[in-house]
Design a protein around this nucleic acid. Structure first.
Lengths: 159, 159
DNA sequence: CATTAGTTGGTTTTACTCAACCAACCATAT
DNA sequence: ATATGGTTGGTTGAGTAAAACCAACTAATG
């Protein structure tokens, strides 16, 4: 798996990949810094822990879905998702319906409120990103959007 | 500050910025997922909490520096850094020396061990990134490296 | 009856905060 | 010159909340 041919034919590839990794470290560090999170939450008028937001996003992404399936996707124990799910439900952001296929199971999905909350949070984050890009050439932003989009696709495919 | 001219002249800019933000969300989510962290830690042979690693990286980045200065940079209370600093010191990854300019203060810096640990962790992370980029055209990787690098620069400048 | 979906209880670690404290610094007023 | 008072660097302690785990439970499947 690691000795695929053609790997050592492109030393520049690895060098560039290293630079990508380095930049990603900075970016991730910024995005997940408590300070940034506080700003995002404040400017969106919401207050939500990181875990709650992650779960909300996953529920919104994977439509009506069982919690155990999400736990599998996220590679955490099912019990980890119980508290955040409860919090999100009590705030009206998600709702549960019985799974017609299995009376033990429930399908969670996002409510209208939840969609609204996601949109607010998403906008706040996008604003922060846009602010950092404000001085850029349009073509550079476009290239970054394309490259990063492809990278995100690769992540989704590999998970 | 928000009504700078030329902003509404480029609707495409904002649209592309939104795509950048969306991709960044996916990427950040991946980087900070417990599963990814577990894999990175396992493949580097180290075990370290996220906070400890963040502090270690900051110390390595900002050379001999006071903890209170780092706390300021990271926008957390000084007391937040005491426990991680103690852990890192007890594992031999950082060391403290008296600040010649002020007998109250100490300057923390990375030890050789610490540098080694950083390199291991960094390599593990870079490997994960490189794996995702393995099928790419070299020029695409190069472009991504450039764009992300510039974005990381923007973050550093704005903080 | 064994398995599965989900919750609950108990435990651990982390990541924060704030308030209190000590020691050292710094300025100023005697 | 020295004593005083206010500020700063760092740790400690108390407290909260998040994030994870595991084991045990229930209710429903098959």
């Amino acid at each position: 798996m690691d000795d695929a041919p053609g790997r050592e034919d492109r030393p520049g590839q690895r060098e560039a990949a290293d630079r990508v990794a380095a930049a990603l470290a900075t970016v991730g560090n910024w995005m997940f810094a408590p300070a940034t999170r506080r700003r995002i939450m404040a400017s969106s008028g919401l207050e939500m822990s990181l875990g709650d937001y992650t779960l909300l996003a996953q529920v919104s992404l994977h439509g009506p879905v069982r919690l155990s399936v999400l736990a599998g996707l996220m590679e955490v124990d099912k019990s980890t998702l119980s508290p955040p799910a409860k919090r999100l439900e009590s705030r009206g952001f998600i709702e549960r319906h019985p799974d017609p296929a299995d009376a033990r199971a429930q399908l969670v999905s996002v409510t209208r409120e939840g969609r609204l909350a996601i949109r607010e949070l998403w906008k706040a984050r996008a604003d922060a990103v846009a602010a950092l890009l404000s001085g850029w050439e349009s073509s550079d932003v476009e290239h970054l959007a394309e490259g990063l989009g492809a990278f995100a696709e690769a992540i989704k495919k590999n998970s």
